[in-house]
C-alpha cells in the first residue's frame, strides 16, 4: 500500500508523441462556470497553426532560462533590486529568436465586428494583449488573415487623452502619441524583442460569448523576431490593469482557470469567470509587480515523505507562470529534491545531464517505469500531487535550480 501511494507508473510510450487524428474534435469542458474556450499546444498536431518545425526540447529549455531570468530580474527590480534597469547578467544570443518561445498554449478568439478569427498565445506573466493589425510594416507571417481595423464596425483607437492611455503610461507601456493623437503602446520581452502600435478597443468573441470594448494593442511593428511562427498575437492574463482577466473581472468575475493539456496532441481549456469551488486553495500573494501571481511553496514531498528543507529557503515566494516551462527552485530545495528522487530511482542507470536538467536516467528497454511521486506543498497545507508528466520530461527530473538561494 505504501509503495502504491509513493510511486507512479510511467509508461515508456508516454515519453514519445503518439500519432493523433486531429480531425476528431476533442471534448473541451470546464468543471466550473464562466466562458470556456479550447486551449491547444502551440507546437502540437492539433494546434490551429501547427509549427512546420517545432523547436527541440534542448532549444525550449534554453529559451526557458531566459524567461525565468527575465521574471526574476523584473520581480527583483520592482521589489527594490536592480531589476531590468541594470545590465542583465544574461547575455541573449542573437540566435535565440524569441523570448516568447516558451509560451506553449494557444486559444482562438474573434476580434471585431464581424469577428475575425485570431490565434493567440496566452501568458499569465504579462498584461497587454496585442494582435498584428493591418497595415503592419514589420510583422511576422501568420496563418489567419491579418486583423483589419478598418473592416470592424466596433473598432476604435484610444486618444492620448483617454484614461486607458494614461493608465498604460503609468504601467510603463505607453509609447507616446501618433500624429493623429492616437495612444501608442510598446511591449518588451526578455530578449529585447518588442512590439509597438496603437492601443485600441474592439469587440472580443470568446466561444459563444463576447466582451465589448476589449482593450488591446493593434501591432504595427515588431523588432527582434517577436514571434517566429504563425500565431497572430498574445493574450495577457497577468494581474495588471490591461490584462484580459482584469478587463473581464467586472462582467465575468474576478477569477479564471486553465487546464494545460498533458501532451502536445491533447487539448485543454481556458475559463474566464470561473466558479471557484472544488479547488484546493492557497493564498495568492501579490506584489508591486502587478502582472505576477505569487504563492508560497512551503515543502516538497518525494515518495510520500516530506523533504527536510528549512522553510526559510522558500521565503522569497514563487510565481505561478503559464509561460515558464520548468519549475525553478532555490538550490537548497532542488538539491534535496534531486537527491531524494535519485534514491527512489536506484534501479535505473543515470544518464548524461541535458541542458538545465542534471537528474537524468537511462530508461532503455524498460517499461513500465516506476517513479517516486512528487508533491508540492503550498501555504495552508495545500498538497499538489504532480502527474507523471510534471515529474519526468524526456528522461530527466523536470525541475531546475536557481543560481543561488537568494535569487
Amino acid at each position: 500500500g505504501d509503495n502504491l501511494r509513493s510511486y507512479k507508473v510511467l509508461h515508456a510510450g508516454s515519453l514519445k508523441s503518439a500519432t493523433v487524428n486531429c480531425s476528431q474534435p476533442k471534448a473541451v469542458s470546464s468543471s466550473s462556470g464562466g466562458v470556456t474556450v479550447p486551449l491547444h499546444h502551440r507546437h502540437g498536431p492539433c494546434s490551429p497553426v501547427p509549427s512546420t518545425e517545432a523547436p527541440t526540447l534542448e532549444e525550449m529549455l534554453r529559451r526557458d532560462q531566459f524567461r525565468a531570468a527575465y521574471i526574476t530580474r523584473k520581480y527583483s527590480g520592482v521589489m527594490g533590486g536592480a531589476g531590468d534597469v541594470e545590465q542583465s547578467d544574461v547575455t541573449v544570443p542573437t540566435t535565440l529568436g524569441t523570448s516568447l518561445g516558451t509560451l506553449e498554449y494557444l486559444i482562438t478568439v474573434g476580434i471585431g465586428s464581424p469577428a475575425m478569427t485570431q490565434t493567440m498565445l496566452i501568458d499569465t506573466g504579462s498584461d497587454v494583449s496585442w494582435v498584428q493589425c493591418k497595415p503592419c510594416s514589420q510583422c511576422h507571417t501568420q496563418a489567419d488573415s491579418l486583423f483589419d481595423p478598418s473592416s470592424s464596425s466596433t473598432y476604435s483607437a484610444f486618444p492620448c487623452s483617454s484614461s486607458a492611455c494614461t493608465q498604460l503610461r503609468q504601467s510603463q507601456q505607453g509609447n507616446g502619441c501618433s500624429s493623429g493623437s492616437q495612444c501608442q503602446y510598446i511591449v518588451k520581452y526578455g530578449d529585447g524583442s518588442s512590439g509597438t502600435g496603437t492601443y485600441s478597443s474592439d469587440k472580443l468573441t470568446l466561444g459563444s460569448s463576447s466582451v465589448s470594448y476589449f482593450q488591446f494593442g493593434c501591432s504595427q511593428s515588431e523588432s527582434g523576431n517577436l514571434l517566429e511562427d504563425q500565431t497572430d498575437g498574445l493574450m495577457g492574463l497577468g494581474g495588471g490593469a490591461q490584462s484580459l482577466a482584469t478587463q473581464t473581472a467586472g462582467t465575468l468575475g474576478k477569477a479564471f482557470s486553465y487546464c494545460l493539456p498533458p501532451t502536445p496532441d491533447s487539448s485543454g481549456f481556458l475559463t474566464l469567470g470561473a466558479a471557484t469551488s472544488g479547488f484546493a486553495k492557497t493564498q495568492m500573494l501579490r506584489s508591486s509587480a502587478p502582472a505576477y501571481y505569487g504563492v508560497l511553496l512551503e515543502a516538497i514531498r518525494v515518495g510520500g515523505r516530506q523533504l527536510n528543507i528549512p522553510a526559510s529557503v522558500f521565503s522569497a515566494k514563487s510565481i505561478m507562470d503559464s509561460g515558464t516551462i520548468i519549475t525553478r527552485l532555490p538550490p537548497t530545495a532542488y538539491s534535496a529534491l534531486s537527491a531524494a528522487f535519485k534514491a527512489g530511482m536506484k534501479q535505473y542507470p543515470p544518464a548524461q545531464p541535458m541542458g538545465i536538467f542534471d537528474t537524468c536516467f537511462n530508461f532503455s528497454g524498460q517499461s513500465p517505469i516506476n517513479i517516486p511521486s512528487v508533491a508540492l506543498v503550498f501555504s495552508g497545507g495545500v498538497v499538489v500531487d504532480l502527474a507523471t508528466d510534471g515529474i519526468i520530461l524526456d528522461s530527466c527530473l523536470a525541475f531546475a535550480a536557481n543560481s543561488d538561494d537568494s535569487s
Partner: peptide, 30 residues
C-alpha cells in the same frame, strides 16, 4: 524567487481567484 512552470501544472486545473485572493488546484481535472 521560485517559479512554478507549466510542465508541473499539466493535468491540473489551475485557478487564479483574484477576487478571493487565492490560487487553486484541481488535480486530474484535465
Amino acid at each position: 524567487l521560485g517559479i512554478i512552470g507549466n510542465v508541473q501544472q499539466r493535468t491540473i486545473e489551475v485557478l487564479y481567484d483574484v477576487g478571493g485572493g487565492a490560487v487553486g488546484f484541481k488535480a486530474g481535472a484535465c
